[in-house]
C-alpha cells in the first residue's frame, strides 16, 4: 500500500475522511437549504423550478455534483466500515451490564444509528426526487416560454401526505442530532482544538445542528399546513 492509502486507512485517517466529508456535506446542506426555501416563494414554483433546472444543467454545478456524490459515498461507506470495525474491537463478549450514559452523551454514541436513519431518508429522497428528476418521467411546466420539469409539483404533492411529512421531519430530527455531535467532532478529529476557539466551534456546531434541520423541516410543515 502506498503511504497515502496507509494513512487514509489508519484509524485516524479514516476518521479524517469522515470529518472532511462530513464538513463538506455541511456546506451542501446550506446550499440545498437555500434552494429549498424557493419552495416558499409563493409563486407557484417558478423560482424553484428555475433553480432546479440550474442545478441540474449548469456545467460547473454538474461537475461539483460528482464531488458531492463522492463525498456522500465516502462518508457512508467509511461510516459503515467504522461501525463494523469499532464493534469488532469490543471482542466476543460484550458487557452484561453497561451504563454508558454516565460518561458520554447519547448523540455521540449513536452516530451510527443516526447516520443509518439519515441514510434511509437519503435513499428515499434520492429515489423520489433526484432519481425522478434525472431519469423518470416528470410533469412539465412552461416558464417564460421554455418547458421545464415541474419538480415543484412533485414536491408539493409529496408534502401534502401526512406520513411523508412526518417521516421527513423525523429524519431532520435525526440529522440535527447527527450534526450536534458531528460538527464539533469533525474539528476535534482534524486536530483543530484550541482553548480560545474550540468553545466557539462548539457553539457554532450546536447552532448549525439546530438551525439547519429546522430550516429543512419547516418547509414541508408550512406547505402541509397551507
Amino acid at each position: 500500500m502506498s503511504w497515502l492509502s496507509t494513512t487514509l486507512t489508519s484509524s485516524i485517517g479514516r476518521k479524517i475522511v469522515m470529518a472532511l466529508t462530513g464538513l463538506f456535506l455541511c456546506t451542501f446542506l446550506i446550499v440545498h437549504l437555500v434552494g429549498n426555501f424557493q419552495l416558499l416563494a409563493g409563486d407557484g414554483g417558478v423560482k424553484f423550478n428555475l433553480y432546479a433546472k440550474f442545478m441540474t444543467t449548469f456545467p460547473l454545478v454538474k461537475a461539483l455534483s460528482y464531488g458531492l456524490y463522492a463525498g456522500f459515498a465516502l462518508h457512508i461507506i467509511q461510516g459503515l466500515m467504522l461501525i463494523q470495525s469499532n464493534k469488532a474491537a469490543r471482542g466476543a463478549n460484550n458487557y452484561a451490564y453497561s451504563k454508558p450514559e454516565a460518561n458520554s452523551s447519547w448523540t455521540s454514541r449513536s452516530m451510527g444509528l443516526l447516520g443509518m436513519i439519515i441514510l434511509l431518508f437519503f435513499v428515499g429522497h434520492m429515489a423520489q426526487f433526484w432519481g425522478q428528476m434525472h431519469f423518470g418521467t416528470m410533469p412539465m411546466v412552461t416558464i417564460d416560454g421554455i418547458e421545464h420539469k415541474d419538480l415543484f409539483k412533485l414536491v408539493s404533492e409529496a408534502f401534502k401526505q401526512p406520513l411523508f411529512v412526518g417521516l421527513y421531519v423525523l429524519s431532520m430530527v435525526a440529522l440535527g442530532f447527527h450534526l450536534w455531535h458531528g460538527f464539533q467532532s469533525a474539528f476535534q478529529t482534524l486536530g483543530l482544538n484550541h482553548q480560545k476557539y474550540s468553545p466557539f466551534v462548539e457553539k457554532a456546531g450546536y447552532g448549525f445542528a439546530v438551525v439547519v434541520p429546522i430550516g429543512y423541516a419547516i418547509i414541508p410543515i408550512i406547505m402541509f399546513l397551507s
Binding site: S11, I12, R14, K15, L82, S85, N86, A88, A89, R90, P100, N103, S104, S105, S108, R109, M111, H181, Q184, S185, Q188, T189
Partner: peptide, 10 residues
C-alpha cells in the same frame, strides 16, 4: 485491534 475514536468523551 483497538477501535477508532469517535469523540464520545467516555
Amino acid at each position: 485491534g483497538f477501535g477508532a475514536c469517535t469523540n464520545t468523551g467516555a
